[in-house]
Design a protein around this nucleic acid. Sequence first.
DNA 1: ATAACTAACTTAACACCGTTAAGTATAATC
DNA 2: GATTATACTTAACGGTGTTAAGTTAGTTAT
Lengths: 209, 209
Amino acid sequence: MTISTRKERQKEELRGKILQAAKELFMQKGFEDTSIRNIAEKIEYSPTTIYLYFKDKDDIFCELHKEGFKLLNQYFRSLAHVSDPFERLKAINKAYITFALENGELYDLMFIIRSPINSIAKDDSDWEEGKRAFAFLTETIKECIAKGYFENMQPDIVAFTVWSMVHGIVSLEIRNRCSVVESLNQKDLARQASEMINEILDRMHKSVQ
Amino acid sequence: MTISTRKERQKEELRGKILQAAKELFMQKGFEDTSIRNIAEKIEYSPTTIYLYFKDKDDIFCELHKEGFKLLNQYFRSLAHVSDPFERLKAINKAYITFALENGELYDLMFIIRSPINSIAKDDSDWEEGKRAFAFLTETIKECIAKGYFENMQPDIVAFTVWSMVHGIVSLEIRNRCSVVESLNQKDLARQASEMINEILDRMHKSVQ
DNA sequence: ATAACTAACTTAACACCGTTAAGTATAATC
DNA sequence: GATTATACTTAACGGTGTTAAGTTAGTTAT
């Protein structure tokens, strides 16, 4: 028993090493620019070994995709204690942007890259953590509505809108499309972006008071 | 003279054919999934011929990038006659989303794809039409501000915010990340998105009256 | 103890990719 | 008619994801 569990543990360890190496390389060079051979070299195994642990490159993608959402949920979890829902909503925005800019390549993987997202969409377990993150946002917005914010608006439509606003900013930044706007200080984009979004939310709120 | 101009014309024609073939393939399969060999096969030339007309694949990208912005400006131009700036702004949002969803792969090229956007950023001529499009938006917002909208906000910050809001929606759709929101009718996304954005703008306006 | 089997890994290969060096055939020029 | 320039192609390089077949060590069965 002990011997077979050790073997199983070792297998799991190698799987973890592959994932770790893949993650580090993806963070450095991005998904497209990281090859199976690169990963193999890093862990000092032959490229084909990786296929004993993962179906294909997309399978590794999926794993890190899930990991990314776990991390995002960690960023969010620390906000659960903020009791005022509107303040929490603004904090979510800030946390989301911080997460995206601190983990650019991971964010890319989660929300921008094309790759195997169509195959991933079928399997519900791949989106579990993603849905949890979105649910946290939706729940916060429901509380806001209960307090009189976003009157006459559907919670998940508001949630989607808020999400897409921050995603818009972040993805333009990550894919380097901000250069057309000269007056935007690239370095302080996170702060400026947060402010803009929260300014918008504030004004929306004032409109219904 | 006639003979050399004919040759020049023929060269230009082939260049155009390459661009046209590339465009069609990009629209069908996306940039990454279209190879130089695919383009060559389509126009019945050898792959290397393409390198006589374009420096590399990124060079073709740049050309279509510029073309995309020209087309976007065509969508915008038809809105110049809308005299009320706030109505025009809302029409711009609608047109932008329509453009993006009608020309998904082209939009991808312009605003999402990583590829050679860093090399493109240096050359100002590549962004000429892009800046014209953004200027149209900024100008409209300046007029809005002159009429009392967006009080105490910087025009190009507002412009960037508006842009990123619509970009957020559109890019989540194009890269298939909308599936987490079950209540969003995928088919009518354009309409729903337009409505959401314009609802937000309306509420922002009411807040300062 | 030896034979058969299994697990973990590697080698070699396939068909593709972007790109380039060298070659060819045709047309223009001297 | 010889040379040179133009327009194009062939063949190759080093890379990619992926797979079929081979190897080597360890486990199990007789």
